[in-house]
Design a binder for these strands. Structure first.
Lengths: 342, 342
DNA sequence: CTGAAAGCGCTTACAG
DNA sequence: CTGAAAGCGCTTACAG
């Protein structure tokens, strides 16, 4: 069964494709095409199972109704959930989305941006990896709108949506302090990312505000493509000797770190929260059913997804609208579970 | 900065766009275009940051280098990981993928298929919801290749990749029996899906093969859009009274069920595996750090993803190749952890 | 009210 | 070796 085109319908009905196009785009009334003909066209379209060729429409109109999404890894539940929200909001507006996982690798994201560009996407939603400034700067020279999520670059003016990482880390650390923890560690990944940096800064500020000196040995910065091994090592250094724990609490800056970390902690025979208290960024499902359910900083994923899509739509519909850039710093939610001893 | 087209380069260089097209498609040698001109064209393309318009190419060639993927929910880690493998394999072959989450809703998948059709995807990878037979049947009337994953319809001849669910459930149940469990329950979702049905069948067969009567009260079938409430209820019915446990083990047919189930079990104050043993399908990350790490049936996600993409590519490249349909039933891996008492 | 025609950016027979 | 031309399937000024 071959696909039917506009022209096939036109020929079948003995009218012009102009007319068919008008009717099928719901502009029949506008051009005062008789109800009779309108009906005939619509019937024929249905009968021939006409599916408009979006690619031809795209070439002609310059709009593809497609959004490109670049995140670190769709298999990471944080990005999976976020991706889902973006897909949902896009679909509500008739847009589809092309998913790309960059693995935090700027080479990959660069290639993915090029590919999306070639695909003529109408907009991009990007969680930019480290060292991808040049790509983002190049993008902002173009006409296609984009919004950065999860992180942004302070020295490039763009649309962005992030959360208040500093504040969240500050509160999480303060929570631990209030519960009497003194030797609070922070395990994080490469600090060149503004969001990660803010988390550690918030952690430090909470300590100093409470008269505690920041101990560099308690801050473990892992490479981005960390393996369980790296985390094992970090944890062992922090809590290796039960008799002489260097740390009595850990703030994990990502859930990937936290989940691996908890596995190590359990393996070492340490009890959460008795021996060591835990707080983590991101509300992974696993945290709910952990040995002791984990207190977390939850991000408003639905809001981020919705806003991201709507910023793109705004810009598509009024490219020169005000404000020139939309920038949001959203609040996080602090969910207290058992892992800190309340 | 406006995008440069083939024609822009041609004009800039004072040659025809035919020539530019040949060179840029690496067919310069083939048409014996002088190295000198080739170089000039390539330099100009780079200088003008030429990006081929894939949409125009698509319209002309009938190939979009895009695959459409329909799964239940990209936020579900099982599908997230699978989606990632598919994305990876597709990218290796120069294809991008449009992700669609159907929520197991045939209305949605129908609409998504139509949308992908209109987008002129070169192939589909689909995890078809219940009651989507008509859509799949319609698809097989068309010329675009597709492969079903995770499930298939016995009465429609298609490409598919599934796992041996019967065998996996049989082994999991046998494992529990060997460890002395007698009252093994199965919590699953709507049985109209062939994969879910096979899991319960394997479970039943293992029981009867070991001389145990199947007790219908021990099989809980939840609606597809189940909530924690439903699971709570099911669990309570099975293990509600500690003095008189109806079940001493549970086989969960999906990890979503299992994760929620474990939460309930913990809430009821029951110990795993002492009071109740647990086995689950799908190797969710959370299962590794559970109160007691969960014994699981793991699916070969990478293999599924790779095969799915390659079946599509095969069919694109030789539409009439043999075999007419590629059908795989892959083996699962049984990973023994603490939740059954070994 | 309706149709002929141009054109979006490519690729590819065809001609020379 | 290189170019003029057709055409993929649409939309949309323009003309009548």
């Amino acid at each position: 069964m071959k696909k039917a085109s506009l022209n096939d319908i036109a020929i079948h009905l003995g009218v012009s494709k102009t007319l068919v196009s008008f009717v099928l785009n719901g502009r029949g009334k506008e051009f005062r095409i008789s109800d009779d003909i309108c009906q005939k066209v619509m019937d024929a379209a249905k009968e021939m199972n006409y599916q408009p060729n979006r690619i031809a429409q795209g070439l002609r109109t310059g709009k593809t109704n497609t959004i490109g999404l670049i995140i670190a890894d769709i298999a990471n539940p944080f990005f999976g959930k976020l991706g889902r929200e973006i897909e949902k909001e896009a679909a509500l507006n008739g847009y589809s989305v092309i998913f790309c996982s960059s693995d935090e690798n700027p080479e990959k994201s660069k290639q993915q941006i090029a590919m999306l560009q070639q695909s003529q996407v109408d907009g991009y939603i990007i969680s930019p990896p480290m060292n991808s400034e040049p790509q983002i700067r190049a993008l902002s020279k173009g006409r296609t709108p984009f919004v950065l999520i999860d992180r942004y670059f302070a020295d490039i003016e763009t649309n962005y949506i992030v959360v208040d990482n500093f504040d969240a880390a500050y509160k999480a650390t303060t929570h631990l302090l209030k519960l009497g923890r003194k030797k609070i560690a922070n395990i994080t990944v490469n600090l060149d990312l503004v969001n990660m940096k803010a988390r550690t800064e918030g952690y430090k500020k909470a300590l100093t505000d409470n008269g505690i000196l920041v101990d560099k040995n308690l801050i473990k910065v892992l490479p981005f493509s960390h393996e369980s091994m790296d985390i094992s090592l970090a944890i062992t250094e922090l809590v290796g000797h039960k008799e002489d724990l260097k740390a009595d609490a850990i703030l994990f800056s990502t859930s990937k770190l936290g989940l691996n970390g908890i596995e190590c902690i359990s393996a070492l025979g340490l009890k959460i929260p008795d021996d060591i208290a835990i707080v983590s960024f991101d509300n992974a499902d696993a945290y709910k059913i952990c040995v002791s359910p984990v207190t977390v900083v939850a991000q408003p994923l639905q809001e981020i997804g919705k806003k991201a899509v709507n910023i793109i739509l705004d810009k598509i519909n009024s490219p020169n609208g005000t404000p020139k850039f939309q920038q949001y710093t959203l609040k996080t939610e602090f969910i207290i579970r058992k892992s800190c001893g309340y």
